[in-house]
Design a protein around this nucleic acid. Structure first.
Lengths: 328, 328
DNA sequence: CTGAAAGCGCTTACAG
DNA sequence: CTGAAAGCGCTTACAG
């Protein structure tokens, strides 16, 4: 079964023009007379012709493909991110080559594939990137943008929430309530998001003379549920739990409920992200809203302008706290 | 800023061989002596060369790109699907060109783009496809696979759960419990999944002389929550509610909880999909497990073999019911 | 095992 | 406005 691709040459033959003319008809801005344009379009219609973007990109050096690499497909936050990216990039005429990686670190392999397909930029959400790989990408002159991640040691663009600021704000809120028995459930410990949220939260409270209890989570509901339950069973009943992300907070919340802890009276719960389900009535989780739309817009801006720049750009957005039913 | 792409020719120059030889080194199975291979690989390393997959595909007619179109990005079920597809296709050497469409119907436009990028197949999850478009795709000889959808009128491959069978099984379960006050909350009414689930469920019970109350949902949590709440407020208290998918059932469940209806004692709740959160302790939703892995495998099988066939293939998988805490 | 050459489907100066 | 020609980076018979 050979695929019969109709080429511009065949259309040209049918329309009785040169192949160059056919090409011009399909190149926005090229000058063709209305008459020949019509003739060509008719022939194209008959033959069911559509230009070959790959052949085109060979010459124009523009593939209009953006590589998007994600790891934690389990986190609803990233689904929202993916949807928004896909939509907004489409509007700009770009397509998304999607790679879901299960490995801790984006593999050489996967980056190579992106390069082979000549992606114009790579957006990495939650996967890790070695500085060696970043270096290699720089050499190939393809911009990399870390989304929702920030790594000072990595010489590449990044768009993220100002996690330290946000976590300090949350800490201030908690402090104002007069709480002293405070728990922070971590995310994956080697992520920049967790590092900064933990830092901002604990440091602020430390300054006020309060020690935060740290429980190790991993950004999954299941683990948060488990560790919180264990914690309660060990005889603790903190006044407030701050989860490193919403899914963590929800796990903690459900564990507290199962233990019949009254929320927010006995224990308040705070998350981070504002995923869609956090606003579900059954949860109504108080959380920090990450302005995803804005973050995506910023990312696309960087992407569109990065050919003119040489130095990587770092964008931090703020977001804000939203009070729902899990805080008093 | 011109992107400096290193071509095989430059590697050839450095390695002192012909460009053909460089090509062979990067073509699995081509015969090159160990000595020259090493020479070439070294030169490639130095120049940071990687073959251009686009140029290659121009000749081989293989792009290794699969188009994946999704609509309902809000449904966690499809996130899981996306993750699995992406992973399994990678294992087979394919990449996913992802399109998220907000339109009810996959647009001509989007399909055109897939064609321009020479995708080798198109997987459509929950978006609608006009028969005209399907026809056009057939003409271009590119296989289309409807995932989790089945449309008799559409001449294309499809992999889905046997929704009629599954819904009848659920109906049988409900019937055996002796329920007579039974509610079905629909999904989007124009989808094949909803149509078949509704059909199987209501027809089975009709055969037993039981009329099912139908409430119109749209496959979102929010709507299911709203309509269920309204329903209870109107003075109803059904013995069981079957939601067209999990997210619908969860919405209903939360509405019932808010109305202090005891679950499953007063009202049992059943979903469909088995998304991850359905197994969360707070929900523990009884539901129909769609064997997603199997469905994806079947899809990929069709995809790999469809060049040898001419007639579209229809696969139906079964799945099974899982009893958790929302049924007695 | 290796090289020279043709060709994949396009774009884009260059003439006219 | 249009055509002939070169060339993008590759693969693949064809010779040797």
């Amino acid at each position: 079964m050979v695929k019969k691709v109709v080429s511009a040459t065949e259309v040209a033959k049918l329309a009785n023009v040169s192949q160059s003319t056919v090409s011009r008809v399909f190149t926005p801005g090229a000058s063709v007379s209305e008459k020949t344009r019509k003739k060509v379009l008719e022939a194209a219609e008959v033959l069911n012709y559509h230009p070959n973007a790959l052949a085109r990109s060979l010459i124009t050096k523009k593939t209009n493909i953006i590589g998007l690499a994600m790891k934690d497909i389990q986190n609803p936050f990233y689904h929202e991110v993916l949807g928004i990216f896909s939509k907004k990039l489409r509007e700009k005429g770009y397509f998304v080559l999607f790679v879901y990686t299960e490995n801790e670190e984006i593999q050489q392999d996967e980056i190579h594939h992106f390069l082979e397909y000549n992606v114009e930029a790579i957006i990495v959400t939650d996967a890790l990137l070695s500085s060696k790989l970043v270096e290699q990408l720089r050499k190939n002159d393809i911009p990399v943008i870390l989304f929702n991640r920030y790594e000072k040691s990595l010489l590449c663009n990044s768009v993220s929430c100002d996690n330290i600021y946000a976590a300090r704000e949350i800490a201030a809120y908690v402090y104002k309530k007069g709480y002293t028995d405070i728990v922070y459930i971590t995310g994956k410990i080697n992520t920049s998001t967790n590092r900064d949220r933990q830092k901002g939260f604990t440091e602020y409270l430390k300054e006020k003379g309060i020690d935060v209890k740290i429980i190790e989570g991993d950004y999954t509901y299941e683990r948060a549920f488990h560790v919180t339950k264990q914690f309660i069973e060990d005889g603790h009943k903190p006044e407030v739990i701050f989860g490193a992300n919403d899914i963590t907070a929800l796990g903690a919340l459900d564990a507290l409920k199962e233990k019949n802890v009254r929320i927010p009276k006995e224990t308040a719960v705070i998350g981070f992200d504002d995923i869609r389900m956090s606003s579900w009535p059954n949860y109504a989780l108080s959380t920090w809203i990450q302005p995803v739309q804005e973050m995506v817009d910023e990312t696309i801006n960087i992407l569109m302008s990065s050919k003119q720049r040489k130095e990587p750009q770092t964008i931090k957005v703020k977001g804000h706290f939203i009070h729902r039913n899990t805080t008093v």
